[in-house]
Design a protein around this nucleic acid. Structure first.
Length: 586
RNA sequence: GGGCUGAUAGCUCAGUCGGUAGAGCUGCGGACUUUUAAUCCGUAGGUCGCGGGUUCAAGUCCCGCUCGGCCCA
């Protein structure tokens, strides 16, 4: 806790609802809060602490267990239908007294018998309380509200419906919850409140909490895979003096003591490759990156990226490895949370169970051109390009479009439903802005292929889309990637698209310092011509390459997006605990 | 930044042509010894996001603003 809160902040740090003494609000919520505070005061009057710390069983020999561990003790008493057999429970647990603690999720009296439900991090357990088991303390249950943190101890019994329950001799308030939880049936669905008050979301929506558990498992499984393969996990700076490693706008910050402007990193790439120079032949980093861009269902300004670099590997090796990695992670998810995973898996519009597609970008563009049914495009994309040494498929279309694109747009767009579905306005805008044929090919890919990937590459059996590696990018779009030995106009690079959305970006690394220096100079030229998103010239990185970086391949993947895919989440905000939002009070 | 769309009780939502603000859950009081969205009876709970305008009359129509959501850049 810091004590240097800015006194100039015009907004009070204390919300109205907890200033009830000075500014009472006669709202329904405030009435509930007042009532719960009064309950806490009554407990204090009885010398009981409504924020107790002395947790633990009172009975000698009682077992203090997590709910999951408690269930494991009597797992053999559970039938195939999920119901417990009372005799078997008694046989397994005998007269043992169990102690559990957690959040009270239900408090339902039916006269002399009260059903309560306690939830801890491992599960939920019913308490079956009666006057017979609790004596005079039974009436005290009235003071417990849903949301309170409680402890209870007693023997195991089975309810008439076959539910494993603790018959408590004691149920005690540990922490009073002043605020009511959202409604039990619909939960909390207001997305704004879910993001702003994630703590409530996590309590009220178990499905939301499951996504974040999955995220943790995903990252751990990933580390296991890399550690087993002999990779070293490292941490490199997140505050950079130069912009590098990706094409994006950075956040600016400032170091006071050195009076130095800094950029929050947009990618760790150039530092990790320095480590490859240093002899760490296999390194990876999982860390936060920052990009000063708009927000969307797929973009948060800060996000988590995995990057790894492997000496003596090529981008072909990494394609194989990517498939292994994703299946290993998904398999681990299936192992640790089988039921939730099965639900997510059926919801997925894609499958990772079949081999991924591998398509050179130029071939994808040629196929995309054919799909539009525009005769001139088909003819052009089948034609050999006049550019020497050029690949012969997609480049034909680029050569054809370059001189007169705009004039024919209306006519082309009417050729077929597929042609009509093309975003012609932005395609034109993007194409005309391109400075070279490489960028033009990439632009054709973006508008003619990428939006249609899910429908064009499908698994016949399941009807689900197949992840696809688009490979062999034009060198102009990839300033850090190695040129293809046979076709220097291309780089040995791929991106993995899952259901049409980019997940990974990888390439064989450019380790020729002179070529890298030339690419940096191109970037600087672009900036001088007004381009906003360019890399800086990194002299030290060139110097590092001059010491010799072994041939290597590198890989980047958004952890947030991976989590979205695997947990069937529709928005990146559903996989980031505290996504960036505007301040609540304007 | 642009288009569309939303904000009504603590939560989930209705609210028709502009005419007294509604329900369920929650809360509070009561009944109930096998519930699990418990049930039954009673009862309380509102700055209709904020500001302006039109009107005899605005949750409703108009304008602006704030904060979201979806799509696009």
């Amino acid at each position: 806790m810091t004590n240097n809160e800015n006194p100039s902040n015009p907004r009070s740090l204390i919300p109205d609802t907890v200033r009830a003494d000075t500014a009472p609000h006669h709202t329904a919520e405030q009435n509930i809060i007042d009532g719960r505070k009064a309950t806490a005061e009554r407990a204090r009057a009885r010398k009981e602490n409504p924020f107790a710390n002395d947790v633990g069983p009172k009975a000698a020999g009682a077992k203090a267990l997590d709910i999951g561990a408690l269930r494991a003790e009597v797992k053999d008493a559970r039938g195939a239908d999920g119901k417990y057999d009372e005799a078997k429970v008694k046989a397994a647990s005998g007269a043992s007294v169990f102690h559990v603690k957690g959040r009270l999720m239900r408090n339902a009296p039916t006269g002399g018998l009260t059903f309560l439900k306690v939830r801890d991090r491992t599960g939920e357990l019913q308490l079956l309380a009666s006057e017979a088991s609790m004596g005079a303390e039974y009436t005290r249950l009235e003071d417990l509200d849903v949301g309170d943190i409680v402890e209870a101890e007693g023997t195991l019994v089975v309810s008439k419906r076959g539910e494993l329950s603790v018959e408590p001799t004691r149920v005690r308030l540990l922490t009073k919850a002043f605020r009511p939880l959202p409604e039990k049936w619909h939960g909390l669905s207001d997305v704004e409140t879910r993001y702003r008050q994630r703590y409530v979301d996590l309590i009220a929506n178990p499905a939301a909490a499951e996504v974040f558990r999955a995220r943790s498992h995903i990252v751990r499984a990933m580390r296991t895979v890399f550690d087993e393969a002999g990779f070293l996990e490292v941490e490199t700076p997140t505050m950079h003096t130069l912009i590098g490693g990706a094409v994006a706008k950075p956040f600016n910050t400032h170091h006071n003591a050195l009076d130095m402007n800094l950029f929050m990193r947009i990618a760790p790439e150039l530092f990790l490759k320095r480590l490859v120079v240093g002899g760490f032949e296999r390194v990876y980093e999982i860390g936060r990156c920052y990009r000063n861009e708009g927000l969307s269902t797929r973009h948060n300004p800060e996000f988590t990226m995995l990057e790894f670099y492997q000496a003596y590997a090529t981008y072909e090796d990494l394609m194989n490895f990517t498939e292994v990695l994703l299946r290993r992670i998904d398999g681990e998810l299936a192992r640790v949370m089988p039921e939730t995973h099965a639900k997510w898996k059926t919801e997925r519009p894609f499958t990772i169970d079949v081999p991924f597609m591998r398509v050179p970008m130029a071939d994808a563009v040629r196929a995309g051109a054919h799909k539009t049914g525009i005769p001139a495009w088909i003819e052009a994309s089948d034609r050999k390009s006049d550019r020497k040494g050029e690949n012969e498929s997609g480049m034909g279309l680029v050569a054809f479009l370059k001189p007169d694109f705009v004039d024919h747009m209306k006519e082309w767009s009417k050729t077929s439903p597929r042609a009509k579905a093309v975003d012609w306005g932005n395609f034109r805008k993007g194409f005309l802005k391109c400075e070279n044929d490489g960028e033009r090919l990439f632009c054709c890919y973006e508008y003619l292929c990428e939006p249609f990937l899910p429908e064009d590459y499908k698994d016949a059996q399941s009807g689900k889309s197949i992840p696809i590696f688009i490979k062999d990018y034009p060198y102009e779009t990839s300033p850090l990637a190695r040129r293809n030995d046979a076709r220097p106009e291309l780089v040995d690079r791929f991106e993995l698209f899952v259901h049409g959305k980019e997940l990974c970006n990888a390439f064989s690394e450019l380790n020729d310092p002179d070529d890298q220096a030339a690419r940096f100079r191109d970037q600087v030229d672009k900036k001088q011509k007004g381009a906003e998103e360019t890399m800086d010239y990194d002299e030290d990185y060139i110097r590092a390459l001059e010491y010799g970086m072994p041939p290597a391949a590198g890989f980047g993947m958004g952890i947030d997006r991976l989590t979205m895919f695997l947990t069937s989440s529709q928005s990146i905000r559903d996989v980031i605990l505290f996504p960036l939002l505007r301040p609540e009070h304007g």
